[in-house]
Amino acid sequence: MFLFFTIINLVFLTLFLILRSLDQLPSPPPFFTSPSPPKTNIIKDCSTTDDILAIEYITLNPDPPIRGHVLNIKAAGNLNETIDQGSYVDVLVRLGLVQLYKGKLDFCKEIEQNFKLKCPLKKGMHKVDSDVNVPKEIPMGKYTVDAQAYTKNGRRIACLKAETVFKP
């Protein structure tokens, strides 16, 4: 059960750090007009231009994450509309070919519990820079995570896919 919650927390961390408003920007910062920061190979943005969140970048350090170490996540994106109560995330987590979890989670409840944020999340540009401890107890293996966030009306907010291997 610990493994399940660790993986789910890593998924939510990635998705919600993008939305977490550490610095509400009135206009695009300089890095949006210069060459973009490198993107991680672990997390893929499977969103489309029709989605509410336009992700500019996601970087991890170290990339890939290492068990028992601090993981720094930097991300930036633009919400094209406000996210309200009733939003949810469809999540699928696998270890190799074994499905560990498939379900729907309350978006607003998760960000409140994990990040002390409350819905509604306001429209606009957001960037984040946060550190997370990766538990050393995560079992070795290849993990894949698919997460798609939706509004209460079923409009997709974002789509993220993650794949990493935790080594000894």
Rank of each mutant, 00 (worst) to 15 (best):
D45S: 04
K127M: 03
K136T: 04
F32Q: 04
D63M: 10
P139H: 08
P64W: 06
L17A: 08
L105V: 12
I55C: 01
E110Y: 03
L95Y: 02
N61G: 03
F31V: 00
D84C: 02
L17K: 05
R67E: 11
P30K: 03
Y143F: 13
D90A: 09
T33G: 04
M125E: 00
G103L: 11
V134T: 08
L97N: 14
P38N: 07
V134M: 07
L25Y: 00
S34I: 01
D23T: 02
Q85R: 11
I111R: 03
I73D: 01
L97A: 13
S87R: 07
R94S: 01
E112G: 04
L17G: 05
S36K: 08
I58C: 07
G68Y: 12
S21P: 01
K39M: 08
L71D: 10
T59P: 01
N78C: 06
C108T: 10
H126R: 14
T33D: 07
P65I: 13
C119I: 14
K74L: 02
K116A: 13
V134S: 06
G103R: 11
G124D: 05
L60C: 12
P37L: 12
K136V: 09
S34H: 06
F16K: 01
R94Q: 10
D84A: 02
K109F: 13
